[in-house]
Amino acid sequence: MNKIVSGADEAVRDIANGATLMLGGFGLCGIPENCIAALVRKGVSGLTCISNNAGVDDFGIGLMLKTRQVKKMISSYVGENAEFERQLLTGELEVDLVPQGTLATRCMAAKYGMPAVWVKAGFGTEVAEGKETRRFDFQGEEGNYLLEPAFNADFAIVKAWKGDRFGNLVFRKTARNFNDPMAGAAKITIAEVEELVEPGEIDPDHIHIPGIFVQRIFKGSNYEKRIEQRTVRKRG
């Protein structure tokens, strides 16, 4: 078994115009930098991107916004991104804002083979408009829940720290974020990793994503890992 592809360009080769993509990361932390660059090179357009955030003007998904490749963003927070704002105001870009936990759970549901989940988040707000609701007596408390559908994506593109040719993955620190619930949540999952190791090198007890969820893997290169908010304290 060998899921290794030569690089990002081969990994994204069959992503067609109009595809729905999941992209891992939180802010700029743990984003699939190599695949985003390959998608920009490929010039594929009309994409629907499921991603917690939309990058910044000149990095992350911001690069795909600049080249007008994105038709719709499904995100919880789109932050400081002037190009994003401009496209939104002119109607070039559609945005579906989803509560962050609901976003993660709709990925998880797809990965776990569940068509929908009941969640409390957003009940009584505009997020609930047009959605089925139900009262549950759950864990000793009655409450109102919204039915939220699992995502239906063509590709999940994730970034991990280490992986092997079977597709087993390990993440590092808070770069795990959405990469974990997205890995395995689409028809095809592409993983880019910082280190490609031999099967057996990762302790089986330490594997975060079993390889069955991953179809393509490659070793990424030239990671910039840009920091959005550099906060430090003085020594001494």
Binding site: F26, G27, L28, C29, G30, N52, Q100, G101, L103, A104, T105, C107, M108, W161, F171, R172, K173, T174, A175, R176, N177, F178, N179, D180, P181, H208, K225, R226, I227, E228, Q229, R230, T231, V232
Partner: peptide
């Protein structure tokens, strides 16, 4: 600073003895 270690405000932070990491779901 470690770009793989940020808080929900996207600020660089640190871990402490006993820290646990997990995914968004």
């Amino acid at each position: 600073e470690d770009p793989d270690l940020i808080n929900a405000g996207k600020q660089t932070i640190t871990e402490i003895p006993g820290t646990a990491y997990f995914d968004s779901a």
